[in-house]
Structure formats: structure tokens, C-alpha cells
Design a protein around this nucleic acid. Sequence first.
DNA 1: CTCATTGATCGACAGACGTCAATGCAAGGA
DNA 2: TCCTTGCATTGACGTCTGTCGATCAATGAG
Lengths: 126, 126
Amino acid sequence: MPNITASTLDAPPRTKGCCQPVAGLLPEATAAELARVFTALDDPTRVQMVRVLAEASEPVCVCDFTAAFALSQPTISHHLARLREAGVVTSSRRGLWSFHQLNPEMAPAAAEAVRMIRAAGRPGAG
Amino acid sequence: MPNITASTLDAPPRTKGCCQPVAGLLPEATAAELARVFTALDDPTRVQMVRVLAEASEPVCVCDFTAAFALSQPTISHHLARLREAGVVTSSRRGLWSFHQLNPEMAPAAAEAVRMIRAAGRPGAG
DNA sequence: CTCATTGATCGACAGACGTCAATGCAAGGA
DNA sequence: TCCTTGCATTGACGTCTGTCGATCAATGAG
């Protein structure tokens, strides 16, 4: 946690002008990667999907989701595609059904975000 | 981590039909809160802003950001407003300048996401 | 008071997004 | 072969978002 205290809240003595150089910028690719992960999870439906996949012991098929959410099948398919494009989910067709699961090789940042979703609503997780 | 192994990848023996009830759904409000946090950080510029604020020892003013990013001042102001609305950042005007810092009382989920951004690009963080 | 500076707000625009109905398509079953 | 089923894709629609230029309010200097 940053050490923001009342003293730092008092105006820093910038006697003239402003615009000090900022510090701590991430490499562009790193920031983009984080944004990509957050974008993949910036929708409540996709959060729930990831949650379900994280709790599931077996791969989940599309119809399971369409039954759980009040959304049309194309919309579910669309959200799954977005998660897949972000590398969070892998899909495999098997007969008529296509099964989906969390990608075991997802990026570390994505894995961390998934951990957040798993921890949410648990004892001791606001 | 979910226990997804090769064996679970083999087709679950759903002999007829599909659509098992899903388990692990979050309360609607919890999913929405997580999505809200992720939405606040789903842009590379905002990721960088949070990163800078997390690394800064003093509050940062808008002109610092306009100098750091190749973006117009209204755009910077817009991003800061979004972070503020999400409860990630607090702002305080002081004279001509308005200073911004991470909100020490941000939601736990937001704090966790900020921790992700701090950890990114550090040794041992993909 | 007059003027320059900082930053918030407004208006506009292009692009992305969530959603659905319709369609396409592969895999089984009759 | 034809029909049904599960799902991906397409096309369309309204909304949200990132960005900018222009403008405005507030502050401080002269």
C-alpha cells in the first residue's frame, strides 16, 4: 500500500508551475496486457461465467450457461468467445456440445484476476 | 486453482441432453461490483494512472499526467473522473491544481486489482 | 479590474460493446 | 435421406466509451 498520509495530503510545495515527471510507468505492453485482462472481465455475465468455471469440476457446456443466465444463446456464445480471445477460457467441441473450461495456461495476470473472482463473496472477502 | 486435469477433459458422461444446473454463482451485486472494478481499469491509460499513483509518494496533479501521456487534458480529466466514480481515486483541489491519489478506502476488490497493477512488471510477475 | 493558468464540463464523432432474431452448420437419430 | 439438436456466426440496433476542440469556472498575479 502506498504511504499516503495526512502529511502527504498537505500541498506539496510546488512554488511555481507544476508538471513534475511521473514515476513508475509500466512498459506499454504490460499496461495493455493488464487492460486486456480487465476488459475480458468487465461484464457481470463474464464474471459469473468465470466464477462458474472456476467452481466447476467438469467442463461446462453452453446450454448450462443459457439455462443459468437470462440471456439468449448467441449472447452466451459471444461472451464465451470474448473470454476465449482473452485466453481465459478454452473450448472443445465434443459431439453436439461444446465444453468450456478455464485455460490452465492463461496469463499470470488473468490467473490473478480469476483468483479475485474465486475469493469474492467468501468469508473475509468484502 | 481449479483441479482441471486431463481426466476431466474427457467427455463427462452426459448420456442424454445437457443443461445441468451450474454451481458457484455469485450474488448479483458481487458480480456487478467486480465488473465495476474491472471496468474502471479496462483501459491502458487508467492502468498507467493507477500505477503512477500507487508508486507516487505525493498526490499527483492533472498536468503531471498530461505531460506523461500523449493525451489531451480533457481526456486525462475524463479518465480521472472514471477512476473517481469507481472509488479508486480521490481528488482534492488546492489552489489552481487538483491533486489525485489512490483512495485509501477503496473497495477490497479494487485494492486487490491495484495490487495486481503494482506487482506487474516486477521480478517474478510474468 | 484585467489577464493568464489549471482543470472540469460540454458537444461531437468514431469505434467498441451487449443484446437479440435470423441464419448457417456439423453431428446424431429416425 | 431428412429432420432435430446444439452452438457459432451474421446483421442490426441502441448504448457506452475514448478522444478531441471549445468553453467555462475558479484561482492567482499584475
